[in-house]
Design a protein around this nucleic acid. Sequence first.
DNA 1: CTATTATTAGAGTATATACTCTACTCAGTC
DNA 2: GACTGAGTAGAGTATATACTCTAATAATAG
Lengths: 223, 223
Amino acid sequence: MKTRDKILLASLELFNERGERNTTTNHIAAHLAISPGNLYYHFRNKSDIIYEIFQEYEKLVDYYLDIPEDRPLTVADMTFYLESVFDGLWSYRFFHRDLEYLLDCDPRLRSDYRDFTNRCLAAMKTIFEKLAEAGIVQKQPEELREVMALNIWLVVTNWMAFLKTAHASTGDEGLSLTALKQGIYQVLTLEMPYLMPEYRDEVMSLRERYRPVLPEQRDSDVA
Amino acid sequence: MKTRDKILLASLELFNERGERNTTTNHIAAHLAISPGNLYYHFRNKSDIIYEIFQEYEKLVDYYLDIPEDRPLTVADMTFYLESVFDGLWSYRFFHRDLEYLLDCDPRLRSDYRDFTNRCLAAMKTIFEKLAEAGIVQKQPEELREVMALNIWLVVTNWMAFLKTAHASTGDEGLSLTALKQGIYQVLTLEMPYLMPEYRDEVMSLRERYRPVLPEQRDSDVA
DNA sequence: CTATTATTAGAGTATATACTCTACTCAGTC
DNA sequence: GACTGAGTAGAGTATATACTCTAATAATAG
């Protein structure tokens, strides 16, 4: 593997583990047992590394959110979207953690990220629309779809951060895949009131699969 | 005003304006035209300043979320809760911005913040319960109240961050009070499906007051 | 008036961070 | 077999950051 790619990979790994703020270019170089100079031979600065990682993230999510035009959506599609998005969020979780600072540092990133957000919101609106066409959820006015998409976006992108703040430990230890996927439970709860009777049971039992094991888990580890 | 209090005030101001990460103790001292040594006479370290500011924040929100036990809740109460919480969020907006890092730095803060979150969620659950008793929203099972409260928490605490990322500018310029209060529109949209017919019109017209002026505002400032 | 304590200034320190510079290696190539 | 240029090492730099130390001054109590 090329050094350049190794740098990207190691950066992502360290950013996710310890946060971008706590990861210096020297750390990255040391982790790869290369010199800082070498790192700066491949990247002009830290921002460029972050920007490239973001572009990977963007590409991945865009790929996940591809919507078939030739057929109606199914509940399985919806499951896939939810699972994929949370997987992507996990793989690049450092990004949303320090989002505001990162955007302040790099105007390119700010602009690209805004476009990215808008694409995601548009995709979600389309998904709603197609779910309605498929008779899975009720047909909603354009405006409501818009606001709903935004609410789901907020829940999805901040679920991980919530879990981290809700846990006693500092690192990733407390973050199980079960807990992460419980975010899907939260999202499906938002959709619940809009389900069509014909699909209600199916979606509800799907939702059930993501229910937290212990309902009061969050309180169980109070000091 | 005592120097100690001035330090807290200036810190909050600078944190909110430029972010905690971009605000050093030297900046704070310079802003007040006092020496760094003086600042460190009053506070052992930066974490202590942040911790005290958090305690103010906590106190304010706890005060806002006080729930009357002797009478049923009204739509006016709900409005007050929403308005107050967003006001508080605005006054201490630096806090949620760098939350994860701040909690990583200070175990006291982590623990206190978790308790704070749980208190807020509990308050929200109680509010739902009392709104149901008052016949404003449908009576819901305990479990649903819990999940709903969490979703609203996510929307409320991250609405500001979303607005900042959605705008082209770096600082606070793009953040109008109108935009901020649009968060209330988002929250009321979540509650919408659970409204009782008797109060539906009243709450819906309340919601209407917070509707964004331009539906596609987010796209209007694309570079 | 004096002794003590609270408050302040301001220079100084240890450490870290992003990044630079110079020099070296070594694989390919004409 | 000299030449080129991508790749690498590693010491070095400018700056910043959180924080300390010493000494001076203002306030207050006895």
